[in-house]
Structure formats: C-alpha cells, structure tokens
Computed example of a mutant assay.
Amino acid sequence: MNVALSPDPAAPEGQAPDPAAAQRAALLADALAGLSAPRKTLPSKWLYDAEGARLFEAITRLPEYYPTRTEVRILTESGPDIARAVGPGAAVVEFGPGDGAKAVQLLRLLDAPAAYLPVDIAPEWLDTAAARVAEALPALRVQPVVADFSQPFDLADRAAGSRVHLGFFPGSTIGNFEAEEAVSFLRRARATLRPGARMLLGADLVKSVPVLQAAYDDAAGVTAAFNLNLLTRLNREAGADFDLGGFTHRAAWNPDLERIEMHLVSRRAQTVQLAGRAFQFAEGESIHTENSHKYRPERLRALAEAAGWRAGASWTDPDRLFSVWLLDS
C-alpha cells in the first residue's frame, strides 16, 4: 500500500515529514482559537484519536444509535440498484473511512471496482480501514491517503486506470459541517475527484426529537465518554490541564437549525491552562464540540446544487430515518 503523507510545515529542511507533529500543532492552534472565541468551541474532527475512534465504533453498535445500522440496511437492500446507477470500473475515494466496514460492503456491490482510496487525518483509522478492505478484497488496489479532507488535498494519479471516481461519504458526516462548510466540502471534493466523478453521500433525515436525543445521549454513557475524551486528548497532546470531572456531556436539539448540538458543560467556575494561557469557565458555560445536522430532501438538493453537483437517485429505509444519495458532477 502506498501512503501519501500530508506535508509537515514544521519539519526541518531535509528531514522526513512528521504527520503526528503536524497534527499536534494543528490541534493546539484550533484549541487556542476555539477557547478564545466569545462562545467556546472545538472542531469535531479532533474527537477522533485512537480512543475516540474506538468509542465511536462502540456508539455505532448502541441500540439508540440508528444511523449506522440503517445506512447498512439501505446499502444491503438497495445495493443492486446502487451498483447499476454507479456502473463498472469505479475507483472509490472514501472521505473518512471509519473501520472500513461500509467500504467493504459497497465495494462488494460494485461491478469491477478499480481501486479503493480511503482519506483521513488519523493514520490509525486509515490503517484499520485499509487492512479490512485489503483482507476482504485482496485483488483490489488499496491506497490510503493521510490528509485532512476538510482542506484541499491532491489525489494525483493514485486512481490511474479507473473509469470514474466515486466519492463515498457515508454516515451523514456531512451533517457535522455548517451549511456553508458543507457546500465548501462538496465543492472541494468535486474539484479533487476526476472530471465526471460522482459522489455517494449518506445523509441523516429530520425525525422525532426523542429518537434524535437518545441517539446522542445514550443510557450507557458511551457518547458522553466519547465527548469527554476530547479533553483527555488536549491534556495529552496539547499540554492542557482539564479536570474531566469538572465537565459533563450535553446533547440538545436546535429546532431552528435542525441539528443536534454536543457540548461539554463546565460544572463549576474554573480556570484551565493551555500553552501558557489561562481560560476562564463560568459554571454552566460550555465548549461546543459537534453539530449533527439533519436534512430534508429539498435542503440536501440545495446543498449539492450550490456546490456544483446534481442530486440524482436516492434511497431510504421504510421508516425514513436515513438516506443515501448519488450526486452527479
């Protein structure tokens, strides 16, 4: 497997890039900026270190968390239709591969896929996904790319010989972006992929608030542990001194923006040190760590069109909990 590493701007001239050092520097920069804002925030991408990845995979197996199993059901039941719509010879470029399970499912459905290119900022995710796909489909070319897919990156000729690029963005990760960020991501993806590319996109749907609330605040507390792990990561990688017992997880539905918001709420007035700076928290003040937008079909179409895509075929489950869309460029 050929791994393309993102450049490390901090690496001295003549030395090999150090992706881990670059990632720590980016984490620190985002934390300083986010905690200095009038309403404190941290980018959700930093939730996914090795422990965050493990906890998220545990979340996907919880009875309250419907998105993963529902999307898998759609891919299973509508798989033949999806494969016919995509056509043969596609190189699948997955943005944020998770454990690779959905990629294996999709690649087995497709007619003669040419290659699999998982893209993620976290090497531990890529290793898992690439190994899983390579084991399941040993004849397939697997070429992971270490990159932050929320920023521009270059695929170069890694999918040479394929008929078409098929972007794959499952799990409704698109919902973690603000509307303008979602449009920017889709526009960048269209520019990164080969002309004539298509995108298979998972999008969670608007539904009853109790179902949504339970999915992001489960009875076992796994989602709370996942959210709080971000503070553990800041302590370990950015030298912060967060007291994990001083914060609690909160998930709330925002009806105006049609999204679930995850926060880490300070239990008391306290001061946190980070990179030589002191950050004050009032009791009840929160760090906004993640959004999960839910979509109506007309809103998803508008996002796609604003980014230069056309929303074509779509598939959903009988209860209309989740949807999978094929976008054309």
Rank of each mutant, 00 (worst) to 15 (best):
R141V: 13
A134Y: 03
A136I: 04
D148A: 11
V142K: 07
E124F: 01
D148V: 11
S150A: 14
V133E: 05
L117I: 15
Q143L: 13
A136K: 11
V145F: 10
Q143K: 07
L137Q: 12
F149T: 09
L126D: 10
L117E: 01
A156E: 15
D154N: 13
P138W: 08
A139T: 15
L126T: 11
R141N: 00
F153V: 07
E124L: 07
Y116C: 10
L126G: 08
V119R: 07
A130W: 01
A131T: 13
Y116M: 08
P144M: 09
R132W: 02
A136H: 10
T128N: 08
T128H: 11
L137T: 11
A139W: 04
L137Y: 05
L137P: 12
A134R: 15
A130G: 12
L137F: 07
A131Y: 00
V145P: 03
R141S: 14
D154S: 14
Q143H: 13
V142S: 02
F153C: 04
R141P: 11
D120S: 12
P123D: 08
F153P: 03
L117S: 00
L117W: 00
L117H: 03
P144R: 08
E135F: 00
W125E: 09
A122E: 15
D120F: 01
L155C: 11
A122F: 01
A131F: 04
V133S: 04
E135P: 00
P138T: 04
D120W: 02
R132P: 04
A134S: 15
F149C: 10
